[in-house]
Design a binder for these strands. Structure first.
Length: 684
DNA sequence: TAAGTGCCTG
DNA sequence: CAGGCACTTA
């Protein structure tokens, strides 16, 4: 590292690679969301008159509720600027996010905090409605896509084909019926593929698939009946109001075309099926109400369709998934005995616990769209199998808290008081501390929040009984790796953590959640801390990086003795450090080039102090909570590394493809011993 | 051949 | 941060 080596024949490689913040984009879905009822028997005057009547009535009720709640916010003659609506939307957005505990500025600014791909939990109809008004097309599409996402692969997806239903093209009245029937024929393609979720999650979910299919077929039948009924009603309505202005006629046509009648009613059947059947006069009244409602705002039907569609489809999926996961949970429950503390902490007597839902799936009266369910299943549930891990898995993830309380209306589970954490305390491990340590990890990593942002549930609308808004905490829970083959009597491994470390059920900042089914699903998947790597281990590894950039297997074995270091786990740890190094060297190169650009012309001027930006970047990465005093030695190593990069770049060595390897060789010799404190389980 | 490493990518 | 791949090394 001789400054004299610097020559001035340098050409800068401008193609250095820097880490980029990546924003995950949700998989895009085609925007052809026409909902076309599929009905096996579409003849009018179909059976089930009382059923249809009931459903019709519930529809009217729902519509009326929707209209009322909408006009309550905005009288019909109130002009609404889009900006005002946008503000409202933002307020809504904000309110849903302010339920979370404040994050540190660092975490808020950290990468990965991409805007949620889906709208956050919408607490009610009116908010949803406002969104609709802002950009009805977009909102509708998003919602339906959301539903489809949750339904991906389900037989119901056959409904979501064809042209975008938001286009608003009119259909001549005379063609309406035949068109609908034709559409039905077109859609009536037997496509009963298995649900990927069911098949992928559990091989023994054939029954669940059947159940789902039956539900869907039932829905189809209902849709057919209701469609026929609706056509009838519609025709009556059309005849009566033939002389009315074109606009209203258009509305009805539009609605009749765009809103498959069945979707409007299905959901409320269960809610209102005790109502008396409608008589003729009542039916007329309903028709009028329906017409009034639709006249009041041409957008209503879109909203209506989207909401009902969303709700209905979600419910079907939800109950099916619920039953599927129930089976799964039964397979893996080791200790259902839970001690639930008031703060939402759950402890178990066993180290492996999956909290099982005690609720029947049918109690999920309101549902979310389970937009992220497939991925959740893949990354979480599928790994619960007590098998030998055969390949690399995502070993550190979070999942929502186990919602151990029975759901009840307006139940609010407050996050337990957050213990004030002593800076970098290893010597007094307690389960509580450990839990909060992980919590801190998560708190300081906004990407974790993002992880479940997409899992937020959506409330049902349409004047349904107020969905229980449960202010439930989301817990950092560690996905247990599939390495569960620890021999029964392995005294050395896990010993420090086995007794005191129960299921990690600390709570995260509040995230509003009102989807009972997801809660129950979540309940069944809790994780132990000491089988596989956890966020504590990750944090510990990051701090260890301050001492060693190239830890040997022995070092890993020594300092991660609380996990069974199988080949896979070891590889995982090695990979972690590899990633750490990658970031480290990228920063070094970046700042070395920056130094050159800024006119630093002597390697002696290349220094790293605790004030330097480079150190801040590194500290932010490896010591995000900033609760660890970075050793001076690391600063020295960092400075040497930076100087090495500076020299190499200055000497134009970076034109050599393997120019960094020389530096790596130097740096790997600068490792120092990791303090013995790290040998203890990381329980700060 | 397995382990370790780095690079690229998502 | 993880997966995949290519490469090196013991």
């Amino acid at each position: 590292m001789e400054p004299s080596l610097l020559d001035h024949n340098m050409h800068h490689s401008s193609s250095s690679t820097y880490p980029e913040d990546r924003t995950e984009n949700p998989p895009s879905f085609p925007h052809n969301n026409t909902y076309i009822s599929s009905s096996p028997q579409s003849s009018s005057q179909s059976s089930g008159g009382s059923l249809i009547s009931t459903l019709l009535q519930t529809t009217i009720e729902s519509k009326r509720t929707l209209q009322e709640s909408t006009t309550a916010y905005y009288p019909p003659d109130t002009p609404m600027s889009s900006s005002a609506l946008t503000n409202l939307n933002q307020v809504d957005h904000h309110s849903s996010s302010t339920t979370m505990a404040p994050l540190s500025p660092a975490s808020q600014a950290s990468p990965g905090a991409s805007p949620t791909r889906f709208r956050p939990n919408e607490a009610g109809l009116t908010q949803d409605w406002m969104l609709e008004l802002v950009d009805r097309h977009q909102a509708k599409r998003a919602r339906v896509e959301n539903i489809i996402r949750g339904m991906a692969g389900s037989p119901l997806s056959v409904y979501f084909t064809g042209e975008g239903f938001g286009e608003g093209e009119t259909t001549p009245t005379s063609h309406l019926q035949s068109e609908m029937l034709e559409n039905k024929r077109k859609q009536r393609v037997p496509r009963h593929q298995d649900l990927p979720g069911t098949g992928g999650v559990s091989g023994k979910s054939t029954d669940d698939g059947h159940t789902l299919r039956k539900q869907l077929q039932t829905m189809q039948r209902l849709l057919g009946q209701l469609q026929a009924r609706f056509i009838q009603v519609y025709e009556n309505q059309t005849n009566e109001s033939e002389e009315e202005d074109h606009h209203s006629t258009w509305n009805k046509e539009y609605v009749a075309t765009k809103i498959s009648p069945g979707d409007v009613f299905l959901d409320h059947y269960s809610e209102f099926n005790n109502k008396t059947p409608l008589d003729k006069g009542h039916l007329e009244w309903m028709n009028n109400k329906q017409t009034d409602y639709l006249h009041s705002n041409p957008d209503n039907e879109d909203k209506l369709l989207a909401d009902i569609l969303k709700y209905e489809l979600s419910r079907a999926v939800n109950s099916s998934v619920d039953s599927i996961f129930k089976n799964i949970s039964h397979a893996f429950v080791k200790s259902p005995q839970l001690h639930v503390e008031d703060g939402g902490m759950v402890e178990t007597d066993d180290e492996t616990v999956f909290l099982s839902s005690r609720e029947p799936a049918s109690t999920s009266t309101h549902v979310d769209s389970m937009s992220r369910l497939p991925s959740y299943s893949e990354s979480g549930m599928a790994q619960q199998l007590p098998e030998i891990q055969t390949e690399a898995l995502s070993l550190v993830v979070q999942k929502p808290a186990s919602m151990t309380r029975p759901r009840s209306l307006n139940l609010t589970v407050k996050r337990p008081l957050h213990f004030h954490q002593p800076p970098f305390l290893y010597n007094h491990p307690t389960a509580v501390q450990e839990s909060h340590q992980v919590l801190d990890n998560l708190k300081h990593d906004s990407s974790h929040h993002d992880t479940f942002g997409g899992l937020q549930c959506r409330p049902s609308t349409m004047g349904l009984p107020t969905p229980e808004i449960v202010d439930l905490p989301w817990d950092p829970v560690i996905v247990r790796s599939r390495v569960t083959s620890r021999p029964p009597g392995n005294p050395q491994v896990n010993q420090p953590m086995t007794t005191g470390h129960h299921v990690l059920l600390d709570s995260l900042p509040h995230i509003k959640m009102d989807c009972g089914s997801f809660q129950s699903m979540v309940k069944r998947t809790s994780y132990v801390l000491n089988e596989g790597l956890t966020t504590q281990h990750l944090k510990k590894a990051k701090l260890m990086f301050f001492y060693t950039r190239y830890p040997s297997s022995n070092v890993l074995k020594t300092f991660f003795s609380d996990v069974q270091l199988t080949r896979c786990i070891t590889s995982q740890l090695i990979k972690w450090f590899s990633n750490f190094r990658e970031f480290y060297y990228i920063q070094m190169e970046k700042f070395a080039r920056q130094a050159r650009v800024e006119g630093v012309n002597s390697v002696r001027d290349v220094a790293v102090s605790r004030d330097s930006e480079l150190f801040r970047a590194l500290n932010m990465h490896y010591n995000k909570a900033n609760d660890f005093q970075v050793p001076d030695r690391f600063l020295e190593v960092a400075e040497i590394t930076l100087q090495e990069f500076y020299i190499a770049i200055s000497l134009a060595r970076d034109s050599d493809p393997s120019w960094k390897k020389v530096i790596y060789k130097v740096i790997c010799k600068l490792d120092s011993d990791v303090p013995a404190e790290f040998k203890a389980p990381f329980t700060t």
